[in-house]
Design a protein around this nucleic acid. Sequence first.
DNA 1: GTCTATAGCGGGATAGAC
DNA 2: GTCTATCCCGCTATAGAC
Lengths: 203, 203
Amino acid sequence: MRAFPPDLPEDVVPEGTKGRILRAALVAFAERGFHGTSIRTIADVAGINSATLYSHFAAKEQILEALVTIGVRELLARLEEALVGTSTGLERLDAIMRATVLGHARYPLLSVVSNSEFHVLSDEIAAPALVPVAEGARLLRAALAQGTAEGSFNISDPTITARTLEGMAQRIPHWINPGTDDPNHLADEYVLLARRLVGAPAP
Amino acid sequence: MRAFPPDLPEDVVPEGTKGRILRAALVAFAERGFHGTSIRTIADVAGINSATLYSHFAAKEQILEALVTIGVRELLARLEEALVGTSTGLERLDAIMRATVLGHARYPLLSVVSNSEFHVLSDEIAAPALVPVAEGARLLRAALAQGTAEGSFNISDPTITARTLEGMAQRIPHWINPGTDDPNHLADEYVLLARRLVGAPAP
DNA sequence: GTCTATAGCGGGATAGAC
DNA sequence: GTCTATCCCGCTATAGAC
């Protein structure tokens, strides 16, 4: 997780100083957490004075809000795109797992910040960011229910199974090495593990 | 995770003020994190003046060190006790999963602090606390290797499988409700999921 | 061991010149 | 938009009386 490039989805990151602030905060929040990071550190890494930061964000918390929003939207967008053209529950589970793994592998710092620092946000700020998260969880539960109805899955406890599937991919950013780990191989492995968890045949 | 009793293993928690400090810090660190918690908050919850805290701990970091040490030792002790009398790889995997789930369910706050705030500790202080963690990971890998050698398991990627098994139980404290969730039922479910992950027959 | 009081520093955020 | 300078507050930790 250290020394990762401060990658953010290019199409939604502002140009110029604001983008540099976001990338600097991304690295710092992922390494030290929100409360462990000072605005002076963010400003230094972004190459600006700490006062300049407030021309782009009204408060430190709003930097985190921007990052979390980008992160949860990116993952949901990947999920929805991956589900296009699927029909069976098994196909949808495969698509969800693959998209989730690839998302976490592509933006590991963003995934860490989105998941680990979420609770720092005030309730009012966190609520809108929770919407894509809830929608992603709903898509997973729907796939599990569909596969079960179709007779493809054999699930003892749907809630625990869903939570386990969600948690599996979230751990990837904590150990992945972008230089040596192949995201597509990881995705294959996680699709296999997911099928096993739900009692479906191997891919 | 909110409103959990500040439970710590009784046999290793100091009596009196020092124990109250540890219990207060346990709740605060679990809810807000180390950097999000002030000395004064800990002291208030413990019912003492903030200065008194320094008669028991030399620094804020040493409170966290004490909690993390208790947490990782508790989990390893449970693992080792659970492995007594086991012989096959399958029996050992079952024992490891059950003990881990029961440990996280019994001391959810301690598990959260041990896992989530570990990285805050300086390298010198973290190193000793990492020893029981590494030993626990070694016991799991050994069980996987043994079960594979015995023909009981069918594992595609041992590293990913081990990481997944470790991560599964770690998420329990984030959603468990001690009033309604039965730890033994949870343990049964996780043993089932673990067997599926490694390609072993259902329990 | 526990307190009152405070040192000393770094935090988030703002004012105002350019 | 960016800077210098600074406010003000809360933080960790300490000094010293009891």
